[in-house]
Nucleic acid binder design. Structure first.
Lengths: 147, 147
DNA sequence: CTTGACCTTCCAACGATGGGAAGCCCCATC
DNA sequence: GATGGGGCTTCCCATCGTTGGAAGGTCAAG
């Protein structure tokens, strides 16, 4: 199976398969006489594993660890769980950060008339910002502009 | 005021100030005779605006639009609100995506004994993944391994 | 045998940020 | 007035995962 077929079967683009090989995440593929990379079903299986892990937000370095554990018959599930827990924490951190941004912006947006007039609490917030964590409070004190 | 002082006063690193200038987000700074960049309070004001917008997750391209509106006395608040709404949508999309990842992983992790044994529902999920959206359902059907 | 679709390698770009090197400038201290 | 330390300048590189493209070789169908 050449790289295009492996890409289609695994959901990992040919470009990325070459990249993963180059960076050592996956071993160098076999080659045909003419130099084409040649993949077996087991390779596609591994690529699907990688694709799935990427879809779950794991970084390549983490996937490297997960692949090692996957290949290790004597692995301890605690190791997998630990990597996963760290990743979940990271996801929750990002979520909290994005939520705070969204909430602040929503509050400001709710106070913005959104019409032809230039007055805008959103710009006012950006203009008067002194530190990153105070706008929500200030914005919550605003009143919606009359229509 | 030189770039280091402007950086300290605005919360934007000197590196980033130069970068913003280079990419055209901010106009080229005045220079002293010896070639040092020279900033006025109004420049620091603008940099704080940028910093605040970055903290709220706006991309530089969006900040470029926001700065234009900020400078435009005849702006319409509707334009600011529209940019903000688009950005909030983007944030909510990212949040939803990350939450789905975290929830799926949490479910799988809850089913993982996390001990010395090699059996691991997390690896099993990665191994058997067929498409990106089915694992949560499968995982929900798992039972917690006995301790 | 030609043509089009594939493969190969290599280089570049994205976005925002940080690190570092080489060389010049400013100010304070001796 | 010399010297030293710290800040400024520009330029290049790295990150991280991914995509795009160019130049050239290969395969398979017509």
């Amino acid at each position: 199976m050449n790289i295009g077929q492996a890409a289609k079967a695994s959901g990992v683009s040919a470009k990325m398969i070459r990249y993963y090989e180059q960076t050592g995440l996956i071993p160098p593929a076999d080659r045909t006489e003419s130099g084409y990379r040649d993949y077996a079903d087991s390779d596609v299986h591994m690529l699907r594993f990688i694709r799935r892990a990427r879809d779950l937000g794991f970084q390549v370095a983490e996937i490297d660890e997960l692949l090692s554990l996957w290949r290790d018959r004597d692995r301890q599930s605690a190791d997998v769980k630990r990597i996963t827990a760290t990743h979940i924490e990271e996801l929750r951190r990002k979520i909290a950060s994005l939520e705070q941004m969204a909430d602040t912006l929503q509050t400001l947006s709710d106070c913005c008339a959104g019409d032809h007039r230039p007055d805008c609490p959103i710009l006012a917030d950006l203009e008067n910002a002194t530190d990153a964590s105070q706008a929500k409070g200030r914005a919550d004190g605003l009143k919606r502009l009359p229509r």
